[in-house]
């Protein structure tokens, strides 16, 4: 590729056709609290692993809704399950189970 001296941002287009309804229903059955999230970001702000990586529950949930499953699993991959986010969540979401459910349903088993 010729370097023209400028870059393009990756496409941020959301293709809702990629949304896997079955998986999301499975997720909301496994942890109904996923529907409560208001995306405030308290979880990310308090995250222990978030200091070293870009672990973020908020972004993981958003990525699922934006049909980007792989990104969602990546945002949850470094979680230490310490439970700080559960305590700070203004909606009292059971975050630990939500994170485990996301990896369980969207991630590939090792």
């Amino acid at each position: 590729m010729i370097d023209f001296g400028y870059t393009l941002n990756p496409s941020s287009r959301i293709n809702l056709d990629n949304f896997d309804r079955n998986k999301f229903e499975k997720l909301s059955k496994s942890e109904p609290d996923v529907l409560l999230c208001i995306g405030c970001g308290s979880c990310t702000a308090s995250c222990t692993a978030g200091k070293y990586t870009d672990t973020s529950l908020r972004k993981a949930i958003l990525s699922i809704l934006d049909c980007n499953e792989k990104a969602a699993v990546d945002f949850a991959a470094s979680c230490l399950l310490c439970g700080k986010c559960t305590l700070v969540c203004p909606r009292s979401i059971n975050t630990r189970n939500l994170l485990l459910s996301i990896t369980k349903i969207y991630g590939k088993k090792q």
């Binding site: 692993a49 070293y52 991959a77 979680c79 990896t103 369980k104 991630g107 088993k109 090792q110």
Partner: peptide, 18 residues
């Protein structure tokens, strides 16, 4: 039996200066 098979990525633990 349920969770130990889930993927995770703790590569950051190996970074120096943690």
């Amino acid at each position: 039996t349920i969770t130990n098979i889930l993927p995770y990525d703790y590569g950051f633990l190996k970074k120096p200066g943690l």
